[in-house]
Design a protein around this nucleic acid. Structure first.
Lengths: 208, 208, 208, 208
DNA sequence: AATGAATGAGCATTCATTCAT
DNA sequence: GATGAATGAATGCTCATTCAT
């Protein structure tokens, strides 16, 4: 049809990304056709191929266009780190989890890129992008742990990287469980319990 | 040509299940055709339909034929429970995790039924079977927690079911992370660290 | 299993034929598998191949084992033919129609071999058998018409064979319509009306 | 390669419908694959799925795209109805039959939708469409019968609807028989004989 | 920028048939 | 006489991708 303006074109692109995220997160990549994504976005099947080279390219674009709010809460807790590093870490993780759980787009992103991670194409760009994010996030946690060690909240011999990965895997574990129980009130409690407990576990390394 | 005796038939069935598990765990259900499963098992495509009604039925059979070794290590730690419930729980979880991580079939089962859980068909039988197992396993953990409460290792007000689910989700979280790092030596350490830490966290509830 | 007696074997054969007729008449040949026929007959799929060479052979056997009751009512009306040939023809046709419509097996035979005739395999034996029966039945009608001509009930110039075929096609037309209206009471009336009317039409050829 | 313009696309669609009708009428729905229909129409298998959702949808489209010429001859005889209703009815039916029998497309339509009616899918849309046509056609016949009653050609007590259905079933009966004898010359005579006879039968009700 | 048409490879499933036991 | 296992060809259907307009 008529040649659209640059803004309209960008709107179409965004709509496609939005619908892809929604549908993929809900039904899984293999149960959603590009045709249906385009249809939901109000354009035809072929239009999708103007914006993206192919399906992998769409997913890669999706993957790059979305950020889970780790950075935001990391920055928020940076100033608190000097008083009590473990407390700050605790707050950082819980706030991040609760944000993800209560915002639709983050939830969908988690669903697609983490709960359904194995469904993703083996496309190098996608896998690398995800791996990079993982590194950034464990980096944040490591920053807290380092300070905690300085503050003698945790034992010296603690293997930081290992702990950091374990903490992060717990974050995703809690979110995964959350997908099966929709009531968000109860959820915050559960997240708190889990993370608190893990932090308490760290804190207790002192004594041992 | 037709397999003649009952044993040969059973062998075919087992081979089909085995290959299905292997391929599905590795590439995902949607990237493996029944034809290729049958071919790997050394029979034609149609033979599969003698043994299973359809793909869902194959997956259901798979799901029922496989057990992660929770029960085994639960029974093993039952006698230790009276001395130190938390220590027994610790051993129970770590042993189970390490067993799963180091035995191919269990690893594959975990991969398919937990890491790839969202890819599974929405078939009621399959989902119910998995839900039942989850209940049994949290049941085991609850048994340890109850005893720990009696032994005053953990606070009275502790929400047991909630903790049990959190523990279990950590088990799967650790295994999920393990899938991305194949060296089993490092792995045992990481599993220990994570679970130890969680248990220590529980233990520390006393003081609060 | 154990070698059965000749009677038992014959029973199996009859059961297979019976079930094939039932299922085929109800759902059509292409919507019923040999496996399901065997299952309904209480034997396995393979047993069918002991009694019949293949599917066409089963259908041929079916076709030969079944007779619509034309001959019976033909013989019944033979003595009445000399008094009033058209009246006898009338009775012959109506009785036959009503018999078929009210006896399950005949109904099924009609359904399969006439209403679904085009679904039958192009197997020569089957088509010939059906063609032979058609000839016999028009032969019966012709016998009545010949006598009617002698009795001057119908015009001399009447093309007998042509009329005979038309009468027979009406018989099947009425039965076909009957398949869409299950109440047998109303049906007899409709059959009477149609056939009566046709006979009256013949009778009226005198006047023209 | 893709057909470009709207007209070319419409041509493809028509070709598909045409081939489907031809093949289905000749060999039956269950003996013709969508692949072969597409091949005969000069496109690939998948193109068919652009134009029709699935096989049932194709058959529905076929069913709706085709009209047996009842209406045409009904309108043609409407003016003659006031002189002699039964004569007009006679002409209406014979002309319609002969038209169907001598035009390939109508013959095929009859073959598929009436002689092979039981093979059709149980799809509601298809069955309803056919039922509606049946009602329209008996409606036409009823119109003639009503006038015939007024003109005292047939007895008052005559059950019109019942007669109308019987007449129509005779039309289809004659056409069915015609399928087994391809020479069209002989056929017109047979059709005339049958319908004439039926009309004469009606006419004779006066006397009774 | 986007549409509409078509391709072609792949998949789950069905089923008549075969045959060793 | 009958069973149980397996074959293999065919079928309807889905879908990512291509491309002329």
């Amino acid at each position: 049809m008529a040649r659209r303006t640059r803004e309209e074109s960008e709107k179409t692109r965004q709509a496609l990304l939005q619908m892809a995220l929604e549908q993929y997160a809900l039904h899984g990549i293999h149960n959603v056709s590009l045709k249906s994504i385009a249809a939901e976005a109000g354009v035809t099947h072929g239009a999708l191929y103007w914006h993206f080279e192919n399906r992998d390219d769409l997913i890669l674009a999706l993957c790059k266009s979305i950020t889970l709010p780790f950075e935001r809460y990391y920055l928020e807790q940076l100033q608190a780190i000097d008083q009590d590093a473990l407390k700050a870490l605790n707050a950082f993780l819980i706030e991040t989890i609760c944000h993800i759980a209560s915002h639709q787009q983050s939830r969908q992103a988690f669903s697609l890129f983490y709960a359904r991670r194995k469904e993703l194409p083996l496309h190098a760009g996608i896998q690398d992008t995800l791996a990079d994010e993982w590194d950034v996030w464990t980096g944040y946690i490591n920053r807290f742990l380092k300070q905690a060690r300085k503050q003698k909240q945790i034992a010296k011999k603690t293997k930081q990287q290992c702990i950091a990965e374990a903490m992060l895997s717990q974050v995703f574990g809690v979110l995964a469980v959350a997908e099966y129980m929709p009531e968000p009130v109860v959820f915050r409690e559960m997240a708190s319990t889990t993370i608190h407990n893990a932090i308490r576990g760290l804190d207790a390394t002192r004594c041992n």
